[in-house]
Amino acid sequence: MTITQKTEANAIVLECEGRLDTTTAPELEAVLLPVFDTNPTVILDFKYLEYVSSAGLRVLLKGQKKAVAVGGSMTVRNVMDEIIEVFEMTGFIDVLTVERI
């Protein structure tokens, strides 16, 4: 997975490309959680993310909790239909702030 960090308006954007699975979830966790300490408004851009497994969902949950803890926000945008399906079957669609593609 490739993670590219950008700044957009008042938010930090993390563009994720590839797969968020058991082998790559630790990479996102290592980047995502510290970002909230510099800017509490974080956008995860999943335009080029094609797969999310439960390991990836756990990282997203940690990110969401961190966002709440610091009084910020985490938005997941440009989410492909197949990943929306995963969010729906696990109830994450109600936990995360999700913007479809």
Partner: peptide, 17 residues
Amino acid sequence: GALAKKLRLIAEELVIN
């Protein structure tokens, strides 16, 4: 492609987790 992701997902969750 969509089916391949589902096969991968089931194998990953069942075996690894």
